[in-house]
Nucleic acid binder design. Structure first.
Length: 967
RNA sequence: GCGAGGGUUGCCCAGCCAGGUCAAAGGCGCCAGACUUAAGAUCUGGUAACGAAGGUUUUCGUGGGUUCGAAUCCCACCCCUCGCACCA
């Protein structure tokens, strides 16, 4: 064994040995199986630290389960469908400076190579080779016989099969949906195509159709319920209005809207024709009919109305909308004769329709007064609006004047009412951005209705219900995220699943479209089972629907499957048996960014396609990785690649660091100087192992289970070790890799230090044997190397060796308690030595007198029976004639003991109840240790009759806390 | 706005669900000692404050509450991060 830790050498050596012996290529057998998957990487770049974290977690779980004796399958594929790879090829071809810079500098691709990646195919070829190399170099125990990319012909056949099923079972429907649209490009815009307004949402307004002489005056609102409180409409005399013809199912309608609104309506699914422009003056001072209440209300002028927002006509609800109230108040007593209005707007009575606990009948008035707002042009009007809307939304209920909607909460009314309005044709939906959106080309974007689009019908309540059932029977790790899954299932709407651009599979029932790339990566875990055979001896064209139905769903017959595919029956049966052996997925582990999308779809599609016995068993979620506190970005940098990490620090160091720096869902920050420290830790471990291997013979390792006459400290260590083994196994099961490493490495290291400090040595070969197995899932190469050098297992891989198992027989309560006594006593001595200024030469320890221990144990057992009480305890004690001697001091001590015990955890109490400790003996055995540690002479006296006690210190002792006197 | 997660001792980061062994694990940093001609590396110990006796005091975002007892449970508030879709 080399004295120096050479990660590069060790790692190459063991990776190639694993490959030679093909130890990670499992086949079905009589063992219990474990199928673990992580999301395959998307190949528009080199694998980075984020992949490293998720994949390493997966590998550690795989290795742990494998060492626990399960038959583990951990496969990997590559995702390439969608637009980014096509976009990247384009950018490289055009020699986009930023792309060239980022990919050469951050991804570490030489420019000459980079320049050849001018087509999506070349990119896929290059990055898939690179990704596999990276994953091999970090030691993942992946079965590479099953790799594939999502543009393989066979994969496309598989996806077609999936979509045929979804279609046949009604999970795919046709419909229209609003998208961000650039009128100049005549294309939808995606977020990275946007100049301004990246955060913009599409908001759904309701148009309320007010009527006037056969014309419709549509008013856009987010609060359709306020239609009950409309007192007038607002028209801005400064903006341009038009009259348009709107095609409707039965009759065409004539609408009056702003010019801007007309432009927007042109992009909706409505059929629109311009009739004429209308002077704004002609729209003011007329009486329109509220379609809901049939009341007639007047139209009035207002400057706050914007032509580019909504329809350019606004309904006024002054009781509940500060702007409306302000605009109305601004008109009080003013001369409106220019508009042909001779009434004073003061006659208009506010209509209250929402009950809000914190406000009067007119919340808008309250808010305007509260903020002390002067006019509709005051900037505070915005704040007042927010306040009123928020309060009304959260705590408002509808009043009696809303008829059948009375008593409904404001927060619940919108969907109900909108539906009713649409049914009666007095309302319509209208979409608008939450903020202006401008395309990269400089053109303002609009909301466009895309018609005849294919949708995955995720909003289907039955489908949602089944997914909810699926989640309920799964393990979600960590458990706290279960609620998140339920929320997101609730929230999920229909999702367009067909695209025009990018790589992918055509929709089998509408070949003009490509299947969207999140939808084609939902049940591919089952494809791993097929992939092994496809990579060997099956052609894509043989993967027929009939064959897939038979293998994956057990539909149809072997006969039919064989005929349709042209495959041998035995082969088909073999694939089918493999599938039913490996499926379902036992765990899928993934970054938390995939919860609201991929993981959700993964569940939706599984329940849609497969029976309950094939539903996934568990999902584990992990957090992100940042780089020196900065967010990583594939396309902009900074980026730490898996290659770079492995190259600079080694595979084992990288694995250990990324798993130990943060727990589960917490984000991890990669810090180079901390990684250096992790490397030192492993060097320390290596040299510890090296020392032990040098100092012991291979026989010492072979006989590791045969120790007789163990010393106290050996028993203590064995007991302690069981706790570490237990905690490591539990933590790994819960995917708490940080906690697992804390126990299997750091804390165990400290235990070993204490063991050696206390003079232990003979268990060291045994310790190393257990320790290295405990660490093997995390740092497999290093552990194989040490394991190999112990020369006690005839060349078996540690990767295939039994993982340490908790052994309750080795738990030794007395040894643990004794060691606690020793270390606490040492702490007490240190504390005293630190405080007193004299130079100490001798320390006297006085163990607890028998009677005090008796008091303590009596109190403990009374506590156990649930009747511990100072009075009762003293009474009980005094029954004992021995105790009467101490009659005067017993009550005081009893009181102390009772409060001490009341403050103990149940665990500690049961621990103490089971113990049987001889203090004097334990302390005597430890005197050498105490002397070595303190540099003083140490004497231990029995507290019952100390030979020497000049300052009467012996009386200070309590059970497990000896009295101390220092000279 | 809606949803989720988080604020801990010089720093990173555990603990919180199952209240008491919690002045609070582990790592880093720092300090001291050993080794060394010395430095570095390595190893060992220490690391809230105060204390001439093992104690005391203050501390886990802020303010309340429940409890014999709260980092942990409840309520309110402040601050930070992420997601909100047709993009992987």
């Amino acid at each position: 064994m080399n004295a120096e830790y050479l990660p590069d050498f060790i790692e190459r050596k063991w990776i190639s040995k694993w490959e030679q012996e093909a130890i990670f290529e499992p086949e079905p057998n009589e063992q219990e199986k474990y199928f673990i998957t992580v999301p395959y990487p998307y190949l528009n770049g080199i694998l980075h630290a984020g992949h490293t974290r998720t994949f390493t977690i997966g590998d550690v779980i795989a290795r742990h389960k494998r060492m626990q004796g399960l038959n583990v399958l951990f496969p990997m594929g590559f995702h390439v469908t969608g637009t980014p790879i096509v976009g990247l090829a384009e950018l490289i071809k055009n020699r986009d400076p930023q792309t060239i810079e980022v990919y050469s500098k951050h991804h570490g691709i030489p420019e000459s190579k980079l320049h050849t990646l001018e087509s999506p195919e070349k990119i896929v070829d290059f990055f898939s080779v690179e990704a596999e190399k990276s994953m091999r170099s970090i030691g993942y125990s992946i079965d590479w016989r099953r790799k594939f990319t999502t543009t393989d012909d066979a994969y496309k056949k598989f996806i077609e099969w999936q979509f045929n099923h979804l279609y046949e079972n009604g999970y795919i429907v046709k419909g229209s949906h609003p998208v961000k649209w650039c009128p100049a490009d005549d294309n939808p815009v995606e977020d990275h195509d946007i100049l301004h307004g990246e955060g913009a949402n599409i908001v759904d307004y309701t148009l309320i159709k007010f009527e006037y002489e056969g014309c419709i005056f549509p008013c856009a609102t987010l609060r359709p319920e306020t239609t009950f409180g409309v007192t007038n409409l607002w028209v801005n005399p400064e903006i341009e209005y038009v009259k348009i013809k709107v095609a409707n199912d039965e009759n065409d309608e004539t609408w009056v809207v702003s010019k801007d609104a007309y432009d927007k309506l042109l992009h909706t699914d409505k059929d629109i024709q311009l009739i004429e422009t209308v002077p704004s003056f002609s729209l003011i001072g007329i009486k329109v009919t509220n379609p809901l209440t049939r009341e007639k209300v007047i139209t009035l002028p207002a400057s706050f109305v914007r032509g580019d927002n909504g329809s350019g006509i606004v309904m006024s609800v002054p009781a509940h909308a500060p702007f409306d109230y302000l605009a109305l108040r601004d008109l009080y007593d003013s001369d409106l004769s220019a508009y042909g209005i001779d009434e004073n707007p003061r006659y208009i009575k506010l209509i209250s329709l929402i009950d809000v606990p914190e406000f009067s009948d007119y919340p808008a008035v309250d808010a305007v007064n509260q903020f002390n707002i002067n006019s509709q042009n005051d900037s505070l009007a915005e704040d007042a609006t927010k306040l009123v809307y928020k309060k009304e939304y959260h705590s408002g209920t509808l009043k009696q004047n809303t008829g059948k909607y009375a008593n409904i909460k404001v927060s619940k009314i919108k969907d109900i009412l909108t539906k009713d309005l649409i049914d009666q044709n007095i309302g319509e939906l209208f979409y608008e951005f939450s903020e202006p959106v401008v395309c990269r080309c400089g053109t303002p974007c609009v909301v466009k209705m895309v018609k005849g689009q294919w949708f995955l019908h995720y909003s289907n309540p039955g489908w949602k219900r089944t997914v909810t059932e699926c989640v309920d029977q799964m393990d979600i790790i960590p458990e706290e995220l279960r609620v998140e899954f339920h929320n997101k299932i609730e929230w999920l709407k229909d999702k367009a699943c067909a695209r025009k651009k990018g790589l992918g599979t055509k929709l089998p029932f509408d070949k003009a479209w490509l299947i969207e790339s999140l939808a084609d990566s939902t049940i591919y875990m089952s494809y791993y089972i097929l992939a092994k055979f496809l990579n060997e001896d099956i052609g894509a064209e043989q993967l027929t629907n009939t064959l897939l139905d038979y293998i994956l769903l057990d539909i149809g017959s072997l006969e039919a499957a064989s005929i349709s595919s042209g495959l041998e029956r035995e082969l088909i049966e073999k694939i089918k048996t493999d599938f039913s052996y490996w499926y379902p997925v036992d765990i899928r582990t993934s970054g938390k960014d995939l919860v609201p999308n991929h993981l959700l779809f993964f569940l939706f599609h599984h329940v849609a396609i497969f029976g309950r016995d094939k539903w996934p068993k568990s999902i584990a979620i992990n957090g992100f990785v940042s780089l020196e506190g900065k967010k990583m970005s594939k396309s902009k940098g900074p980026l730490l690649t898996m290659n770079e990490a492995v190259h600079l620090y080694g595979a084992d160091v990288t694995r250990m660091y990324i798993l130990s720096s943060a727990e589960q869902t917490q984000d991890a920050d990669w810090k180079n100087d901390k990684v250096e420290n992790a490397k030192k830790q492993l060097e320390r471990f290596y040299s510890f192992a090296h020392q032990i291997i040098k100092s012991f013979s291979s026989n010492d390792f072979k006989n590791r289970h045969e120790y007789n006459d163990l010393d106290h400290i050996d028993k203590w260590f064995l007991s302690q070790l069981q706790q570490r083994i237990y905690q490591t196994n539990i933590s790994l099961k819960q995917v708490k890799t940080r906690n697992a490493l804390q126990n299997s490495f750091f804390i165990l290291f400290n235990d070993v230090k204490w063991y050696q400090r206390r003079g232990g040595s003979r268990l060291l070969p045994y310790i190393l044997d257990v320790w290295v197995r405990l660490m093997a899932p995390f740092t497999p190469h290093l552990c194989e190397e040490i394991w190999d050098n112990m020369e006690h297992t005839n060349g078996n891989f540690i990767s295939l060796t039994q993982y340490p198992i908790y052994n309750s027989e080795l738990i030794d309560i007395d040894a643990q308690l004794a060691e606690e006594l020793v270390s606490k006593t040492l702490e007490d001595m240190d504390e005293i030595l630190k405080v007193i200024k004299l130079k100490p030469t001798t320390i006297y320890l006085y163990s607890t007198p028998k009677w005090k221990k008796y008091v303590f144990m009596t109190a403990l057992s009374m506590n156990d029976q649930g009747n511990l009480d100072v009075g009762l305890l003293i009474k009980e004690l005094m029954k004992e004639s021995e105790m009467k001697k101490y009659g005067k001091i017993v009550p005081k001590y009893a009181q102390k003991v009772v409060s001490e015990i009341k403050g103990m955890s149940d665990e500690k109490i049961s621990f103490l109840l089971k113990s049987n400790l001889n203090e004097t003996e334990v302390l005597n055995l430890a005197t050498d240790f105490f002397e070595k540690e303190t540099g003083c002479q140490v004497y231990v006296y029995n507290g019952d009759s100390p030979e020497y006690d000049p300052k009467n210190k012996a009386g200070n002792s309590t059970y497990l806390k000896p009295a101390i006197y220092v000279e």
